[in-house]
Write a protein that binds this DNA or RNA. Structure first.
Lengths: 204, 204
DNA sequence: TGTGTATTTGAATCGTTCTTCAACTTCGAT
DNA sequence: ATCGAAGTTGAAGAACGATTCAAATACACA
Protein backbone atom coordinates (compact mmCIF):
# COMPACT_ATOMS: atom_id res chain seq x y z
CA UNK A 1 0.00 0.00 0.00
CA UNK A 2 1.09 3.50 -0.72
CA UNK A 3 1.80 5.80 2.20
CA UNK A 4 -1.24 7.61 3.36
CA UNK A 5 -1.21 11.37 2.74
CA UNK A 6 -3.22 14.41 3.63
CA UNK A 7 -5.96 15.54 1.31
CA UNK A 8 -4.01 18.56 0.08
CA UNK A 9 -0.79 16.64 -0.51
CA UNK A 10 -2.56 13.85 -2.30
CA UNK A 11 -4.36 16.20 -4.61
CA UNK A 12 -1.05 17.75 -5.61
CA UNK A 13 0.35 14.28 -6.25
CA UNK A 14 -2.65 13.37 -8.33
CA UNK A 15 -2.37 16.47 -10.46
CA UNK A 16 1.23 15.56 -11.16
CA UNK A 17 0.31 11.98 -11.87
CA UNK A 18 -2.44 13.12 -14.23
CA UNK A 19 0.01 15.35 -16.05
CA UNK A 20 2.33 12.43 -16.67
CA UNK A 21 -0.53 10.18 -17.69
CA UNK A 22 -1.78 12.77 -20.17
CA UNK A 23 1.67 12.97 -21.74
CA UNK A 24 1.72 9.22 -22.14
CA UNK A 25 -1.79 8.65 -23.41
CA UNK A 26 -3.20 11.97 -24.53
CA UNK A 27 -5.94 14.07 -22.97
CA UNK A 28 -8.61 11.88 -24.52
CA UNK A 29 -6.78 8.63 -24.10
CA UNK A 30 -6.10 8.85 -20.36
CA UNK A 31 -7.97 6.44 -18.17
CA UNK A 32 -8.51 6.37 -14.47
CA UNK A 33 -6.08 3.51 -14.11
CA UNK A 34 -3.34 5.34 -15.94
CA UNK A 35 -3.53 8.13 -13.40
CA UNK A 36 -3.74 5.68 -10.53
CA UNK A 37 -0.64 3.86 -11.79
CA UNK A 38 1.33 7.08 -12.15
CA UNK A 39 0.35 8.01 -8.60
CA UNK A 40 1.06 4.56 -7.22
CA UNK A 41 -2.53 4.18 -6.04
CA UNK A 42 -5.65 2.31 -7.01
CA UNK A 43 -8.44 3.79 -9.06
CA UNK A 44 -10.64 3.91 -5.99
CA UNK A 45 -8.24 6.22 -4.21
CA UNK A 46 -8.11 8.54 -7.20
CA UNK A 47 -11.88 8.65 -7.28
CA UNK A 48 -11.98 9.40 -3.59
CA UNK A 49 -10.17 12.67 -4.25
CA UNK A 50 -11.53 13.40 -7.70
CA UNK A 51 -14.94 11.83 -8.25
CA UNK A 52 -14.82 13.24 -11.77
CA UNK A 53 -11.72 12.42 -13.77
CA UNK A 54 -12.28 15.24 -16.23
CA UNK A 55 -11.96 17.76 -13.41
CA UNK A 56 -8.60 16.32 -12.48
CA UNK A 57 -7.48 16.55 -16.08
CA UNK A 58 -8.48 20.19 -16.27
CA UNK A 59 -6.54 20.89 -13.09
CA UNK A 60 -3.52 19.08 -14.48
CA UNK A 61 -3.59 21.14 -17.64
CA UNK A 62 -4.13 24.30 -15.67
CA UNK A 63 -1.21 23.55 -13.39
CA UNK A 64 0.99 22.68 -16.35
CA UNK A 65 0.23 25.99 -17.98
CA UNK A 66 0.90 27.98 -14.86
CA UNK A 67 4.19 26.24 -14.40
CA UNK A 68 5.15 26.88 -18.01
CA UNK A 69 4.29 30.55 -17.75
CA UNK A 70 5.94 31.05 -14.38
CA UNK A 71 9.14 29.46 -15.61
CA UNK A 72 9.25 31.85 -18.51
CA UNK A 73 8.82 34.82 -16.24
CA UNK A 74 11.46 33.55 -13.87
CA UNK A 75 14.07 33.01 -16.55
CA UNK A 76 13.74 36.54 -17.82
CA UNK A 77 13.39 38.24 -14.45
CA UNK A 78 17.10 38.39 -13.70
CA UNK A 79 17.88 40.18 -16.96
CA UNK A 80 17.66 43.89 -17.49
CA UNK A 81 18.71 44.46 -21.10
CA UNK A 82 15.57 44.33 -23.25
CA UNK A 83 17.43 42.70 -26.12
CA UNK A 84 18.67 39.96 -23.87
CA UNK A 85 15.21 39.61 -22.40
CA UNK A 86 13.69 39.23 -25.81
CA UNK A 87 16.16 36.57 -26.91
CA UNK A 88 15.78 34.58 -23.71
CA UNK A 89 12.02 34.85 -23.80
CA UNK A 90 11.89 33.52 -27.32
CA UNK A 91 14.02 30.58 -26.26
CA UNK A 92 11.92 29.87 -23.22
CA UNK A 93 8.80 29.58 -25.35
CA UNK A 94 10.28 26.76 -27.35
CA UNK A 95 10.62 23.15 -26.23
CA UNK A 96 14.17 22.06 -25.42
CA UNK A 97 13.56 18.98 -27.54
CA UNK A 98 10.78 16.82 -28.97
CA UNK A 99 9.96 15.38 -25.56
CA UNK A 100 9.82 18.62 -23.61
CA UNK A 101 6.98 17.92 -21.18
CA UNK A 102 5.86 21.51 -20.76
CA UNK A 103 5.26 22.17 -24.42
CA UNK A 104 3.93 18.70 -25.09
CA UNK A 105 1.25 19.21 -22.48
CA UNK A 106 0.20 22.49 -24.07
CA UNK A 107 0.11 20.92 -27.50
CA UNK A 108 -2.27 18.27 -26.26
CA UNK A 109 -4.91 20.94 -25.92
CA UNK A 110 -4.79 22.48 -29.38
CA UNK A 111 -7.34 20.14 -30.84
CA UNK A 112 -9.37 19.68 -27.70
CA UNK A 113 -9.92 23.44 -27.38
CA UNK A 114 -12.13 23.40 -30.46
CA UNK A 115 -14.48 20.98 -28.71
CA UNK A 116 -14.06 21.93 -25.07
CA UNK A 117 -14.80 25.43 -23.88
CA UNK A 118 -12.81 25.08 -20.69
CA UNK A 119 -9.65 24.12 -22.54
CA UNK A 120 -10.29 26.86 -25.08
CA UNK A 121 -10.39 29.44 -22.32
CA UNK A 122 -7.25 28.10 -20.69
CA UNK A 123 -5.29 28.22 -23.92
CA UNK A 124 -6.62 31.59 -24.94
CA UNK A 125 -5.76 33.06 -21.58
CA UNK A 126 -2.25 31.69 -21.75
CA UNK A 127 -1.81 33.11 -25.23
CA UNK A 128 -2.91 36.55 -24.10
CA UNK A 129 -0.63 36.50 -21.11
CA UNK A 130 2.32 35.57 -23.26
CA UNK A 131 1.49 38.37 -25.64
CA UNK A 132 1.43 40.81 -22.74
CA UNK A 133 4.80 39.50 -21.62
CA UNK A 134 6.39 40.22 -24.98
CA UNK A 135 4.65 43.52 -25.19
CA UNK A 136 6.16 44.78 -21.98
CA UNK A 137 9.63 43.80 -23.18
CA UNK A 138 9.10 45.57 -26.48
CA UNK A 139 7.68 48.67 -24.85
CA UNK A 140 10.59 48.89 -22.50
CA UNK A 141 13.09 48.37 -25.30
CA UNK A 142 11.42 51.07 -27.35
CA UNK A 143 11.33 53.47 -24.42
CA UNK A 144 15.03 52.95 -23.82
CA UNK A 145 15.79 53.48 -27.46
CA UNK A 146 17.20 49.96 -27.80
CA UNK A 147 14.49 48.87 -30.21
CA UNK A 148 13.27 50.78 -33.24
CA UNK A 149 9.95 49.05 -33.72
CA UNK A 150 8.57 48.93 -37.24
CA UNK A 151 5.14 47.82 -36.06
CA UNK A 152 2.62 48.13 -33.31
CA UNK A 153 4.08 46.21 -30.34
CA UNK A 154 0.81 44.28 -30.00
CA UNK A 155 1.12 43.02 -33.53
CA UNK A 156 4.73 42.00 -33.02
CA UNK A 157 3.94 40.29 -29.74
CA UNK A 158 1.03 38.35 -31.16
CA UNK A 159 3.18 37.15 -34.00
CA UNK A 160 6.04 36.18 -31.72
CA UNK A 161 3.81 34.04 -29.55
CA UNK A 162 2.19 32.57 -32.64
CA UNK A 163 5.59 31.61 -34.04
CA UNK A 164 6.62 29.98 -30.78
CA UNK A 165 3.43 27.99 -30.66
CA UNK A 166 3.74 26.76 -34.20
CA UNK A 167 7.38 25.78 -33.94
CA UNK A 168 6.59 24.04 -30.69
CA UNK A 169 4.30 21.78 -32.68
CA UNK A 170 6.91 21.20 -35.36
CA UNK A 171 9.56 20.30 -32.82
CA UNK A 172 7.37 17.92 -30.83
CA UNK A 173 6.36 16.29 -34.11
CA UNK A 174 10.08 15.74 -34.73
CA UNK A 175 10.51 17.77 -37.87
CA UNK A 176 13.75 16.47 -39.40
CA UNK A 177 15.14 19.95 -40.00
CA UNK A 178 13.49 22.29 -37.53
CA UNK A 179 14.78 21.72 -34.03
CA UNK A 180 15.00 24.13 -31.11
CA UNK A 181 18.00 26.00 -32.51
CA UNK A 182 16.55 26.36 -35.97
CA UNK A 183 13.20 27.47 -34.64
CA UNK A 184 14.85 30.06 -32.42
CA UNK A 185 16.76 31.39 -35.39
CA UNK A 186 13.59 31.62 -37.49
CA UNK A 187 11.79 33.57 -34.81
CA UNK A 188 14.82 35.75 -34.21
CA UNK A 189 14.90 36.59 -37.88
CA UNK A 190 11.46 38.10 -37.46
CA UNK A 191 12.34 39.77 -34.20
CA UNK A 192 15.44 41.36 -35.70
CA UNK A 193 13.48 42.78 -38.58
CA UNK A 194 10.81 44.41 -36.46
CA UNK A 195 13.06 45.66 -33.67
CA UNK A 196 15.98 46.83 -35.75
CA UNK A 197 18.25 45.15 -33.23
CA UNK A 198 20.88 42.48 -33.97
CA UNK A 199 19.64 40.28 -31.11
CA UNK A 200 22.55 37.93 -30.60
CA UNK A 201 21.35 34.38 -30.08
CA UNK A 202 22.39 32.92 -26.75
CA UNK A 203 23.55 29.38 -26.22
CA UNK A 204 20.89 27.41 -24.51
CA UNK B 1 -31.04 -0.75 -43.84
CA UNK B 2 -28.73 1.57 -45.63
CA UNK B 3 -28.41 1.16 -49.40
CA UNK B 4 -25.79 -1.33 -50.33
CA UNK B 5 -22.73 0.11 -52.04
CA UNK B 6 -19.64 -1.06 -53.84
CA UNK B 7 -16.47 -1.58 -51.87
CA UNK B 8 -14.76 1.48 -53.31
CA UNK B 9 -17.74 3.77 -52.83
CA UNK B 10 -18.29 2.62 -49.31
CA UNK B 11 -14.71 3.17 -48.35
CA UNK B 12 -14.95 6.74 -49.57
CA UNK B 13 -18.14 7.17 -47.54
CA UNK B 14 -16.48 5.77 -44.48
CA UNK B 15 -13.52 8.07 -44.77
CA UNK B 16 -15.92 10.99 -44.90
CA UNK B 17 -17.90 9.62 -41.99
CA UNK B 18 -14.72 9.15 -40.00
CA UNK B 19 -13.71 12.70 -40.73
CA UNK B 20 -16.98 14.01 -39.33
CA UNK B 21 -16.79 11.71 -36.34
CA UNK B 22 -13.27 12.90 -35.56
CA UNK B 23 -14.45 16.52 -35.64
CA UNK B 24 -17.20 15.67 -33.18
CA UNK B 25 -15.28 13.50 -30.76
CA UNK B 26 -11.58 14.02 -31.39
CA UNK B 27 -9.04 11.64 -32.86
CA UNK B 28 -8.69 9.84 -29.56
CA UNK B 29 -12.32 10.04 -28.61
CA UNK B 30 -13.83 8.52 -31.73
CA UNK B 31 -15.40 5.14 -31.37
CA UNK B 32 -16.46 2.63 -33.93
CA UNK B 33 -20.10 3.45 -33.32
CA UNK B 34 -19.55 7.14 -33.92
CA UNK B 35 -18.20 6.40 -37.36
CA UNK B 36 -20.99 3.91 -38.02
CA UNK B 37 -23.61 6.49 -37.05
CA UNK B 38 -22.10 9.15 -39.29
CA UNK B 39 -22.10 6.66 -42.14
CA UNK B 40 -25.61 5.43 -41.42
CA UNK B 41 -24.37 1.90 -40.91
CA UNK B 42 -23.77 -0.51 -38.09
CA UNK B 43 -20.41 -1.09 -36.50
CA UNK B 44 -20.20 -4.49 -38.16
CA UNK B 45 -20.36 -2.94 -41.60
CA UNK B 46 -17.61 -0.49 -40.75
CA UNK B 47 -15.46 -3.33 -39.53
CA UNK B 48 -16.14 -5.28 -42.69
CA UNK B 49 -14.40 -2.56 -44.69
CA UNK B 50 -11.87 -1.46 -42.08
CA UNK B 51 -11.04 -4.25 -39.67
CA UNK B 52 -8.78 -1.78 -37.88
CA UNK B 53 -10.38 1.50 -36.92
CA UNK B 54 -7.07 3.28 -36.52
CA UNK B 55 -6.30 2.67 -40.18
CA UNK B 56 -9.53 4.33 -41.14
CA UNK B 57 -8.72 7.29 -38.93
CA UNK B 58 -5.33 7.69 -40.56
CA UNK B 59 -6.94 7.61 -43.98
CA UNK B 60 -9.48 10.18 -42.88
CA UNK B 61 -6.77 12.51 -41.68
CA UNK B 62 -4.74 11.91 -44.77
CA UNK B 63 -7.69 12.65 -47.03
CA UNK B 64 -8.53 15.77 -45.04
CA UNK B 65 -5.01 17.08 -45.46
CA UNK B 66 -4.91 16.40 -49.14
CA UNK B 67 -8.19 18.19 -49.59
CA UNK B 68 -6.98 21.15 -47.58
CA UNK B 69 -3.78 21.41 -49.57
CA UNK B 70 -5.44 20.91 -52.96
CA UNK B 71 -7.97 23.61 -52.20
CA UNK B 72 -5.21 26.03 -51.41
CA UNK B 73 -3.46 25.27 -54.67
CA UNK B 74 -6.68 25.61 -56.61
CA UNK B 75 -7.58 28.96 -55.18
CA UNK B 76 -4.26 30.46 -56.11
CA UNK B 77 -3.92 28.78 -59.49
CA UNK B 78 -6.05 31.24 -61.39
CA UNK B 79 -3.97 34.21 -60.22
CA UNK B 80 -0.80 35.44 -61.87
CA UNK B 81 0.28 38.45 -59.82
CA UNK B 82 2.62 37.21 -57.08
CA UNK B 83 1.33 39.80 -54.61
CA UNK B 84 -2.23 38.67 -55.17
CA UNK B 85 -1.12 35.07 -54.91
CA UNK B 86 0.57 35.72 -51.62
CA UNK B 87 -2.44 37.46 -50.12
CA UNK B 88 -4.85 34.80 -51.26
CA UNK B 89 -2.58 32.01 -50.08
CA UNK B 90 -2.35 33.53 -46.63
CA UNK B 91 -6.11 33.70 -46.48
CA UNK B 92 -6.56 30.15 -47.65
CA UNK B 93 -4.37 28.88 -44.83
CA UNK B 94 -6.67 30.33 -42.22
CA UNK B 95 -10.01 28.91 -41.13
CA UNK B 96 -13.05 30.86 -42.31
CA UNK B 97 -14.37 30.70 -38.77
CA UNK B 98 -14.04 28.74 -35.53
CA UNK B 99 -15.85 25.74 -37.00
CA UNK B 100 -13.95 25.48 -40.24
CA UNK B 101 -13.76 21.71 -40.70
CA UNK B 102 -10.54 21.66 -42.70
CA UNK B 103 -8.45 23.47 -40.12
CA UNK B 104 -10.17 21.82 -37.20
CA UNK B 105 -9.21 18.42 -38.54
CA UNK B 106 -5.59 19.48 -38.86
CA UNK B 107 -5.58 20.89 -35.36
CA UNK B 108 -6.76 17.57 -34.00
CA UNK B 109 -3.39 16.12 -34.88
CA UNK B 110 -1.11 18.61 -33.20
CA UNK B 111 -1.05 16.81 -29.90
CA UNK B 112 -1.36 13.31 -31.32
CA UNK B 113 1.72 13.81 -33.49
CA UNK B 114 3.93 13.83 -30.41
CA UNK B 115 2.77 10.31 -29.56
CA UNK B 116 2.03 8.88 -32.99
CA UNK B 117 4.72 8.67 -35.62
CA UNK B 118 2.28 8.30 -38.50
CA UNK B 119 0.47 11.48 -37.62
CA UNK B 120 3.77 13.24 -37.06
CA UNK B 121 4.89 12.35 -40.56
CA UNK B 122 1.59 13.45 -42.08
CA UNK B 123 1.72 16.83 -40.36
CA UNK B 124 5.39 17.37 -41.08
CA UNK B 125 4.91 16.56 -44.74
CA UNK B 126 2.01 18.96 -45.01
CA UNK B 127 4.04 21.67 -43.35
CA UNK B 128 6.91 21.20 -45.78
CA UNK B 129 4.62 21.24 -48.77
CA UNK B 130 3.03 24.46 -47.62
CA UNK B 131 6.44 25.98 -47.13
CA UNK B 132 7.38 25.00 -50.67
CA UNK B 133 4.16 26.57 -51.91
CA UNK B 134 5.00 29.92 -50.33
CA UNK B 135 8.56 29.65 -51.47
CA UNK B 136 7.62 29.37 -55.11
CA UNK B 137 5.40 32.43 -54.81
CA UNK B 138 8.16 34.41 -53.17
CA UNK B 139 10.76 33.30 -55.67
CA UNK B 140 8.54 34.27 -58.55
CA UNK B 141 7.77 37.64 -56.99
CA UNK B 142 11.44 38.30 -56.41
CA UNK B 143 12.33 37.27 -59.95
CA UNK B 144 9.72 39.62 -61.36
CA UNK B 145 10.96 42.43 -59.18
CA UNK B 146 7.60 42.67 -57.40
CA UNK B 147 9.04 41.65 -54.06
CA UNK B 148 12.19 43.00 -52.46
CA UNK B 149 12.83 40.19 -50.00
CA UNK B 150 14.67 41.10 -46.82
CA UNK B 151 15.28 37.46 -45.91
CA UNK B 152 15.95 34.04 -47.30
CA UNK B 153 12.68 32.93 -48.94
CA UNK B 154 12.84 29.65 -46.99
CA UNK B 155 12.90 31.53 -43.73
CA UNK B 156 9.99 33.72 -44.75
CA UNK B 157 7.99 30.75 -45.97
CA UNK B 158 8.54 28.75 -42.83
CA UNK B 159 7.43 31.67 -40.73
CA UNK B 160 4.37 32.30 -42.86
CA UNK B 161 3.19 28.72 -42.53
CA UNK B 162 3.97 28.80 -38.82
CA UNK B 163 1.88 31.93 -38.37
CA UNK B 164 -1.04 30.39 -40.24
CA UNK B 165 -0.89 27.30 -38.13
CA UNK B 166 -0.80 29.17 -34.88
CA UNK B 167 -3.62 31.56 -35.75
CA UNK B 168 -5.63 28.60 -36.93
CA UNK B 169 -5.46 27.30 -33.38
CA UNK B 170 -6.41 30.67 -31.92
CA UNK B 171 -9.40 31.00 -34.20
CA UNK B 172 -10.72 27.50 -33.63
CA UNK B 173 -10.32 28.10 -29.90
CA UNK B 174 -12.56 31.14 -30.37
CA UNK B 175 -10.16 33.85 -29.31
CA UNK B 176 -12.40 36.83 -28.53
CA UNK B 177 -10.27 39.27 -30.52
CA UNK B 178 -8.39 37.28 -33.13
CA UNK B 179 -10.73 36.12 -35.86
CA UNK B 180 -9.97 35.32 -39.50
CA UNK B 181 -9.69 38.98 -40.52
CA UNK B 182 -7.46 39.93 -37.64
CA UNK B 183 -5.23 36.92 -38.15
CA UNK B 184 -4.89 37.69 -41.84
CA UNK B 185 -3.89 41.22 -41.01
CA UNK B 186 -1.29 40.04 -38.50
CA UNK B 187 0.28 37.71 -41.00
CA UNK B 188 0.12 40.34 -43.71
CA UNK B 189 1.97 42.73 -41.45
CA UNK B 190 4.84 40.27 -41.47
CA UNK B 191 4.54 39.59 -45.17
CA UNK B 192 4.60 43.30 -45.99
CA UNK B 193 7.73 43.84 -43.97
CA UNK B 194 9.72 41.06 -45.58
CA UNK B 195 8.51 41.58 -49.15
CA UNK B 196 8.54 45.34 -49.24
CA UNK B 197 5.16 45.17 -50.95
CA UNK B 198 1.93 46.85 -49.78
CA UNK B 199 -0.06 43.61 -50.23
CA UNK B 200 -3.62 44.87 -50.27
CA UNK B 201 -5.88 42.61 -48.24
CA UNK B 202 -8.69 41.09 -50.26
CA UNK B 203 -12.23 40.60 -49.03
CA UNK B 204 -12.84 37.00 -48.33
C1' DT C 1 -35.75 -15.37 -63.48
C1' DG C 2 -32.40 -17.62 -60.85
C1' DT C 3 -27.86 -18.12 -58.82
C1' DG C 4 -23.85 -16.75 -56.47
C1' DT C 5 -21.33 -13.37 -54.20
C1' DA C 6 -20.63 -9.12 -51.71
C1' DT C 7 -22.53 -6.37 -48.28
C1' DT C 8 -25.03 -5.52 -44.15
C1' DT C 9 -27.45 -6.59 -40.00
C1' DG C 10 -28.21 -7.93 -35.32
C1' DA C 11 -27.23 -10.53 -31.56
C1' DA C 12 -23.96 -12.89 -28.67
C1' DT C 13 -19.54 -12.63 -26.47
C1' DC C 14 -15.50 -10.81 -24.60
C1' DG C 15 -12.56 -7.58 -22.54
C1' DT C 16 -11.99 -3.08 -20.49
C1' DT C 17 -13.12 0.76 -17.76
C1' DC C 18 -16.02 3.08 -14.50
C1' DT C 19 -18.39 3.03 -10.28
C1' DT C 20 -19.67 1.56 -5.79
C1' DC C 21 -18.81 0.08 -1.34
C1' DA C 22 -17.66 -2.65 2.78
C1' DA C 23 -13.60 -3.63 5.12
C1' DC C 24 -9.14 -2.34 6.50
C1' DT C 25 -5.36 0.86 7.74
C1' DT C 26 -3.22 4.86 9.24
C1' DC C 27 -2.86 8.91 11.76
C1' DG C 28 -4.10 12.74 14.77
C1' DA C 29 -6.50 14.21 18.66
C1' DT C 30 -7.66 13.51 23.20
C1' DA D 1 -3.80 3.85 24.61
C1' DT D 2 -7.99 4.62 22.45
C1' DC D 3 -11.29 6.71 19.48
C1' DG D 4 -12.73 8.58 15.42
C1' DA D 5 -12.03 10.48 11.05
C1' DA D 6 -9.73 10.27 6.81
C1' DG D 7 -7.53 7.64 3.34
C1' DT D 8 -6.94 3.40 0.85
C1' DT D 9 -7.78 -1.17 -0.86
C1' DG D 10 -9.83 -4.79 -3.44
C1' DA D 11 -13.66 -7.02 -5.11
C1' DA D 12 -18.19 -6.95 -7.24
C1' DG D 13 -21.13 -5.46 -10.73
C1' DA D 14 -22.74 -2.13 -14.16
C1' DA D 15 -21.81 0.04 -18.47
C1' DC D 16 -19.62 0.31 -22.57
C1' DG D 17 -17.04 -0.69 -26.67
C1' DA D 18 -14.81 -4.04 -29.73
C1' DT D 19 -15.16 -8.23 -32.03
C1' DT D 20 -17.23 -12.26 -34.11
C1' DC D 21 -20.37 -14.53 -36.95
C1' DA D 22 -24.60 -16.74 -38.71
C1' DA D 23 -28.40 -15.09 -41.07
C1' DA D 24 -30.60 -11.85 -44.10
C1' DT D 25 -30.46 -8.95 -48.00
C1' DA D 26 -29.23 -6.67 -52.27
C1' DC D 27 -27.11 -6.72 -56.42
C1' DA D 28 -24.58 -8.44 -60.76
C1' DC D 29 -24.68 -11.38 -64.13
C1' DA D 30 -25.99 -15.21 -66.72
Amino acid sequence: MSARKSRADRRVDLIEAARRAILRHGTQGVHLNHVAEEAGLTSGAVLYHYPDLSELLVEAHHAGMERFYEQRLKRVARLSDPAEKLVVTIRSGLPVGPDDPGVRLLNELGGAAARNRVYAVLLTTLYDRQVAMYQSILDMGAALGVFALTEDPVVISRNLVALEDAYGYRITARHPVIGPDEAAELILSYARTVTGHALAAVAH
